[in-house]
Design a protein around this nucleic acid. Structure first.
Length: 196
DNA sequence: AAACCTTCCAACCGCAAGGAC
DNA sequence: CGTCCTTGCGGTTGGAAGGTT
């Protein structure tokens, strides 16, 4: 039986206070990320490392974009989800400044409904796309996203098609799927995202 | 104005992968 | 090689905020 990550130590739960945020930011700015296990004590926080990591990754990181998703981002999420399924971290990895949690929430609250409106089953969008009835709006309306072969290789940790042998079989079908005409390379951010 | 309902998002939980020993 | 520990991921939940009656 695995021990809970926070043992029975007295740790805070729930929403983070500004002081806690500041402590975490200060500590990471001084020492960098890493060793989340020991970070709370070192930073003087009554939180478990997991909680600190989540707070940093999802909310405090300076490179986070935040704010509404653009249409390009929406379409990209939809396409990536059709290809990858609920692999939110991979999807988020293709959206600079977005976190897996943010993408997941956005999918569950906005995009699911959007797909349903389009007549696509969001739980089965992959099948829907791959069968004959894929709505044009999903796959062909990709002017904003360059069309070229899927690029998942390189030095990226999120190497999808490569070493990830745990990938579910459906993902391995990608090589035999119809040409989805997807480009998953990260293009330079559109101007609207630069400097805002 | 108040009660109730719905939506949204930050945070938690449990599990699995991978590295260290 | 097996076990333990840490990290990261995805699913789920709780509560605040906004909307409706």
């Amino acid at each position: 039986m695995r021990k809970p990550c926070c043992e029975k130590k007295e740790t805070n739960k729930g929403a983070w206070s500004k002081q806690e945020d500041q402590k975490l930011i200060d500590h990471i700015q001084k020492h960098g990320e890493g060793c989340w296990r020991s970070l709370p004590q070192a930073a003087g926080l009554l939180r478990c490392g997991k909680s600190c990591r989540l707070r940093w990754v999802n909310y405090l990181r300076p490179d986070l974009k935040r704010g509404n998703f653009g249409e390009d981002e929406e379409e990209l999420i939809i396409k990536l989800h059709a290809l990858l399924g609920n692999r939110w971290s991979l999807i988020a990895g293709r959206l600079p400044g977005r976190t897996d949690n943010e993408v997941k929430n956005y999918w569950n609250t906005h995009l699911k409904k959007k797909l349903i409106k389009r007549g696509i089953d969001p739980n089965n969008d992959r099948l829907a796309h791959y069968s004959a009835g894929a709505p044009k709006s999903c796959l062909s309306n990709s002017n904003s996203i360059r069309t070229s072969p899927v690029n998942f290789n390189g030095d990226d940790d999120n190497n999808v098609g490569g070493s990830d042998s745990s990938m579910d079989p459906k993902c391995n079908q990608t090589s035999s799927l119809p040409d989805l005409n997807l480009d998953l390379t990260v293009a330079p951010p559109p101007m609207e995202y630069v400097g805002s």
